[in-house]
């Protein structure tokens, strides 16, 4: 089985400071592997353990982002590819999805692509469906459990106020939740391999992409403003002469302000 895991480097959340002008202060903030991506890695290694195959990690980001792939090598991933190019900076999910899909295509004949359900920074959850669409393959998202048999993957996921069991034909993109498994800890040998691992670096030419379809020019969203939410004002005394009036006035005000 030819398996890819998409892993992302994210800032360690508690370290994000918000400056007075609402700009993010990220400089020097330590980074880490997007936490749920550990479960994507575990899912891949578990499939490899069961049926054999290769696990390739892919991350798109700065040179430093490659470090998060060492966590995957340490627990048994075979190799890692860093997709990195300054022209990719500012990519939204449309562009990021395209870039990652091209990288998966370059690896070729991939049966399974595991991803985390969301990142902790962009937090859109749109990369898994975007990648599935670009590759034109099945998608199983928010998987809480996974098993693979032959060319079928079976997963459970929360949906419509219940738990559904879904079966998908491979090849497929599968995004996993933190319930999907318990990530294993690295052993000494894995840690050594992780330390020594050298990663291929692919730029946009390697992916057969042109500069216009990535980065800001390949994106179709723009952030126009960042601001801190205004706290609700305190000390509003609800008016009314009877309990019924009081309750009605309160609910009316809350509904008008979209607070209920």
């Amino acid at each position: 089985m030819n398996i890819v895991v998409l892993v992302k480097q994210v800032p360690a959340v508690s370290e994000i400071e918000i400056a007075q002008d609402n700009n993010l202060v990220r400089v020097g903030a330590p980074s880490m592997l997007n936490p749920v991506d550990k479960h994507a890695i575990e899912a891949a290694i578990a499939v490899k353990d069961a049926v054999g195959g290769t696990v390739t990690l892919i991350t798109m980001g700065t040179a430093q982002a490659a470090e998060v792939m060492r966590d995957g090598i340490a627990v048994g991933a075979d190799k890692g590819v860093l997709v990195s190019d300054e022209r990719m900076a500012g990519s939204d999910t449309l562009a990021t999805g395209l870039i990652l899909a091209k990288a998966i295509e370059k690896i070729g004949d991939v049966d399974l692509v595991f991803t985390g359900k969301r990142s902790t920074d962009g937090d859109t959850g749109q990369i898994p469906p975007a990648v599935a669409q670009y590759l034109n393959i099945s998608l199983v998202s928010y998987a809480d459990s996974i098993s693979v048999e032959g060319s079928t993957i079976t997963a459970t996921r929360a949906n419509h106020g219940g738990i559904e069991t879904v079966q998908a034909q491979l090849p497929a993109v599968v995004s996993v939740t933190d319930k999907s498994n318990t990530p294993r800890s690295p052993k000494i040998r894995g840690k050594m391999a992780a330390k020594k691992a050298v990663f291929d670096v692919w730029r946009i030419e390697d992916l057969g992409l042109d500069a216009a379809s990535v980065g800001k020019s390949g994106s179709a969203t723009k952030v126009t403003e960042m601001f801190a939410p205004e706290p609700n004002p305190v000390g509003i005394m609800v008016e009314g002469n009877t309990p019924a009036d009081l309750a009605a006035n309160l609910v009316k005000d809350l509904t008008a302000k979209n607070l209920l």
């Binding site: 449309l94 898994p128 469906p129 975007a130 599935a132 669409q133 994106s219």
Partner: peptide
């Protein structure tokens, strides 16, 4: 899932 796929298929932006 539909949103993410649609965005990629139509090559249009999506806000999540």
């Amino acid at each position: 899932d539909l949103g993410g796929r649609l965005s990629a298929k139509l090559k249009v932006g999506l806000v999540a």
